[in-house]
Design a protein around this nucleic acid. Structure first.
Length: 937
RNA sequence: GGGCUCGUAGAUCAGUGGAAGAUCGUCGCCUUUGCGAGGCGAAGGCCCUGGGUUCAAAUCCCAGCGAGUCCA
């Protein structure tokens, strides 16, 4: 990035000089001509610790100072966005104030809600999870105060670099930061496919803000010729964007920290929570006794790591200071941080889960449980979250509205974690009992598969005096293992890409399905056709979107009938896909008038189901809580599904209640209205709730409202005009598609009636089989099942008895081969293999070598057994070998142990032959045995 | 979204192709003044469901349902 990017008028006018840092070599701007380093850690220690940069201010004071300062500079103050980035599909959590405006506004497709604007945006970043607490400066949740200006090339510029730096300098000076302290460090910025020059604002060794001038976007190919104006940063090529955007991030917590000069940012932001944790474990804050040392450690921690600090300060501190004081303190900091993060995550509606953003919430929750346990601290996590919510209530009163749900979720999560650990304890015990060593692989497997943390495994193992070694890089090993998994590259939809190319020059299609929701025929003019696709100037055909399938139907061109099989909207141009057999070039002409006709029944079914979806999610949210969000939906003709976030299984009672409430909404016959509204106006009026089915592009949103704004959603689908038209709504079933997400299946209108009739029919048929009234079905079925179980048992017992009776008969049929008694018989009462086994077993206990064959169904069962005494005599008679031989004869196979074996075959007619073969085998063995004995004698 | 586990007696789990098991709990009898406990015995299983492979499946394969867990 060229030097000229940073030649900012204001800096030059103000007498800043550009210097190269003696330590890191980067360029920076300063008023202090003697300054040698950029001022940033690790080039410089945290000098502000113990020596605040300006007078002490609380977070609320800093926030208000910032917002009102920029308001005075004509910025519009914005409400915060949620910490869950529901409007984006590339990230789960809101990581920066600019994230609020990506990608639609930053790409220029949608105008900003205000310009310029200012916001203090709570953000969550979990990348540095491991160093939270220890580093003294990392937070999982922080407020990024940002002022943004969105400039469009060729348009009127709001402001750019000069004003941005000027505002920053003025704001810092107004807070009381000494001029000569402030440095602006040049640090090219890139992220999320964008890049641009950037100035890091540093004072007292602390980076307070980042001023990004975002004007580049990543391209996938290197420059093709000299005309391409491209820049390479870190091996990636970028080109100028259509927009150039002021993207600033001022770390609210860092300002508070700088104003207090406490050893850590945690002590500056939530000392109340830290004190609570300290007192609960009977520890005093080391500030009381080790003030100077803590300040020294904190100052150095920007420059070196813990081990180096420990080495350097060895002489000034008690021997076990780091393990006895610093480590528990680190943990307390981390707990205080995590619970603050949870306050926002849970209040903003994240439901803990094993997937997506829910997993991130559970990760933070479980880390917190683990840390509380390691301190043997018994404060419930809810209490800590509640403390934060109270501390934050000035700026974020909305957090407390969710307190009940947060309590319930956290209590549930604690119970789940307890169960995971007790399950884990059993598994580890089992492993140890099995005499297995606990290897690193085992540790990883236990964690990966069962969620058992290695520390816990070690703890359980140590109780059995089994050594467990946890490698230091344990978690990175786990991460590495997953990193090796192959990643599938998202395939760009080539069909749509091709269509986009072709339709670019065409005007947007007039959408008759919005204007005339009740029509099913229309006249239109052919604008273009190619491959299997037709574009008209106007259409009734609804294109696939918002989980609603496309309409089908026909286009009548003269006497020809073209079947429409699919419809897509490509940037507002609606493309009809015709069945492959049609020959468009012979049947169509550009400019030709055609008549279209949609499958009205199908459309109405979709329309009813679509309105029903809005009603069902409304009902679910009303009954289950405000955390209910749509996590996916698909409408069909016969049934539809809706996925919602919820932290428990939906019970049958809840399912019925939702169904009832939904039908009440139908019976109230409320208006369903759809109208286009300016996007920013819609967001302002209805909030993010409108984005249940994702965030559609465009300056205007189609807003679908039920009743007096009972449910409001941005939705492109077709809808009934009254809830009454939806007809009955029948919830068919619910299933849990992942932890925290419930899928609700339902039918509406005619389909619901059909479903209910089908269910009626099932019940009727079942009842008529049993010849009982339907009302007695459950009771009777239960009784029948019980009786069936009884009879089965009785049957087994009787068969065993019959088998017992066979014993004496069979014993009488024994023949002697030498001095061995052998029974080899075909049993004609069709016996099951299990009973044959029982008889054979009995007979061999009584001293008989036994071979039994029987017919079971259309095949032969073969069982052989050999008594212990016979094997002991060294006569090599093997039951498995006999069975194999006999089964070979009857056309099958078998096996087992030397003492008892079973098998079977298909050739029923060969049963006698099989007996003979078995006997022959025994004869041979006895002969060999006798020969050997004779020889020895 | 991807990966890895698991589903067997009321509970916790063994059982990796060849006769469904253990421990706890339950019930009955005995011992004990009683409690606690001990002794003897018994009951209790659609081995999650449906297909497939095999002479043979709790066990192997496929699909579904249910549960747990890790990662992005």
């Amino acid at each position: 990035m060229s030097e000229s990017e940073y030649n900012i008028e204001y800096l030059i006018e103000e007498g800043f000089v550009r210097k190269e840092c003696k330590k890191c070599g980067s360029w920076f701007w300063t008023r202090d001509r003697d300054r040698a380093t950029c001022g940033d850690a690790p080039c410089e220690a945290y000098s502000f610790i113990g020596a605040p940069l300006f007078t002490e201010r609380s977070a609320d004071e800093i926030r208000e100072a910032f917002l009102s300062f920029f308001e005075s500079k004509n910025h519009t103050r914005m409400r915060r966005y949620p910490v869950v980035a529901r409007w984006r599909d590339d990230i789960y959590l809101n990581i920066a104030s600019i994230a609020n405006f990506q990608p639609l506004i930053t790409s220029g497709r949608v105008p900003p809600p205000a310009n310029p604007l200012v916001v203090s945006q709570p953000c969550i970043r979990l990348e540095d999870l491991a160093s939270i607490g220890r580093s003294g400066r990392h937070l999982t949740m922080f407020e990024m105060m940002g002022h943004h200006a969105f400039n469009k090339r060729g348009g009127e510029e709001i402001y750019w670099k000069n004003e941005t730096v000027k505002y920053c300098d003025e704001f810092l000076k107004r807070l009381g930061v000494a001029e000569e302290w402030i440095t602006y460090k040049e640090a090219p910025w890139m992220g999320g496919g964008n890049a641009g020059p950037c100035l890091e604002v540093i004072a007292g060794g602390l980076e307070l803000a980042t001023l990004v001038f975002m004007d580049l976007e990543a391209v996938h190919h290197p420059p093709r010729n000299g005309l391409d104006d491209m820049t390479s940063i870190g091996g990636q090529w970028y080109r100028k964007m259509e927009m150039y955007i002021v993207d600033t991030g001022y770390g609210l917590e860092r300002f508070v920290w700088a104003s207090k000069g406490t050893p850590t940012v945690y002590d500056a932001i939530f000392p109340e929570v830290i004190d609570e944790l300290l007192s609960s474990i009977g520890m005093e804050h080391p500030m009381e006794r080790y003030r100077n040392q803590l300040i020294e450690i904190a100052r150095l921690s920007g420059v070196m790591n813990r081990r180096e600090i420990a080495k350097k300060l060895r002489l000034q501190l008690p021997e076990n200071f780091f393990t006895a004081v610093m480590e528990p303190l680190d943990t307390i900091y981390a707990i205080a941080d995590h619970t603050r993060c949870l306050a926002f995550m849970l209040a903003d509606g994240i439901v803990p889960s094993n997937a997506k953003e829910g997993y991130l919430a559970r990760l933070v929750i479980r880390r917190t449980f683990r840390m509380l346990k390691s301190l043997q601290c018994d404060i419930p996590v809810e209490e800590l979250v509640a403390m934060h919510i109270k501390l934050l209530s000035g700026a974020f009163p909305e957090l407390s509205e969710s307190m009940d749900r947060i309590n319930e979720i956290l209590a549930l999560e604690r119970e789940r974690y307890r169960e995971t650990l007790s399950r884990g304890e059993r598994i580890v015990k089992q492993l140890i009992k099995g005499g297995k060593e606990i290897s690193v692989d085992t540790l990883i497997n236990l964690y990966d598969t069962h969620g058992i943390p290695p520390e816990f495994t070690g703890e359980v193992a140590s109780r059995f005096h089994v050594p467990v070694e946890i490698p230091e890089d344990f978690y990175s090993r786990v991460a590495r293992m997953h990193g090796e998994e192959r990643r599938e590259v998202a395939e760009v939809d080539q069909v749509v890409a091709n269509l986009r190319e072709r339709t670019r020059s065409l005007p947007k299609t007039q959408r008759l399905y919005y204007d005339e929701p009740r029509s099913y025929v229309f006249n239109a003019t052919v604008l273009d056709y190619f491959d299997k696709f037709v574009v008209l100037d106007r259409t009734l055909f609804y294109p696939e979107g918002g989980g609603q399938p496309a309409d089908t139907g026909v286009i009548l061109a003269g006497s020809d009938e073209l079947k429409v099989v699919d419809v897509k909207s490509v940037d507002g141009v609606i493309v009809h896909e015709i069945e492959p057999e049609a020959r468009l070039e012979t049947e169509l002409k550009r400019g030709m008038d055609v008549r279209g006709c949609i499958n009205y029944q199908r459309r109405m079914a979709h329309t009813r189901h679509h309105s029903a979806t809005h009603i069902v999610i409304w009902a679910a949210r009303k009954l289950l809580g405000e955390h209910v969000w749509q996590a996916g939906a698909q409408k069909g003709e016969l049934r539809s599904r809706l996925d919602i976030t919820h932290f428990k299984r939906i019970t049958d009672d809840e399912k019925r209640a939702i169904e009832m409430l939904a039908n009440e909404m139908v019976m109230r016959n409320e208006d369903i209205s759809a109208s286009f509204l300016d996007r920013n106006e819609a967001e302002r009026r209805y909030g993010f709730r409108i984005y249940q089915g994702g965030v559609p592009p465009g300056k205007e949103l189609r807003i679908v409202r039920i009743g007096a704004d009972e449910d409001v959603q941005a939705c492109a689908g077709t809808h009934c005009s009254k809830t009454g038209e939806v007809g009955p709504i029948k919830i068919l079933r619910t299933e849990r598609i992942q932890d925290g997400i419930e899928r609700i299946w339902y039918s509406a209108g005619e389909a619901a009636v059909t479903e209910m009739q089908a269910r009626d029919e099932l019940i009727k048929q079942a009842a008529s089989v049993l010849r009982i009234p339907e009302s007695r079905l459950p009771e009777t079925v239960r009784r029948f099942f019980e009786e069936w179980k009884q009879l089965r048992k009785e049957n087994e017992r009787l068969r065993a008895e019959i088998a017992g009776l066979q014993l004496d008969i069979l014993k009488n049929k024994a023949q002697k081969i030498d001095d061995i008694e052998v029974i080899a018989e075909v049993i004609h009462d069709a016996m099951k293999e299990k009973e044959l086994l029982r008889i054979a077993s009995e007979l061999s206990s009584a001293g008989f070598v036994t071979l039994l064959l029987s017919r079971t169904g259309d095949r032969v069962a073969v069982v052989a057994s050999v008594p212990d005494e016979v094997s002991q005599k060294n006569v090599n008679i093997n039951a498995a070998t006999i069975v194999k031989q006999v089964c070979h004869v009857v056309g099958g196979g078998g096996g087992g142990t030397a003492k008892i074996a079973q098998g079977g075959g298909e050739r029923i007619e060969k049963m006698e032959e099989g007996i003979a073969a078995g006997l022959q085998l025994v004869n041979e063995w006895v002969k060999v045995f006798k020969d050997r004995v004779d020889k020895r004698d």
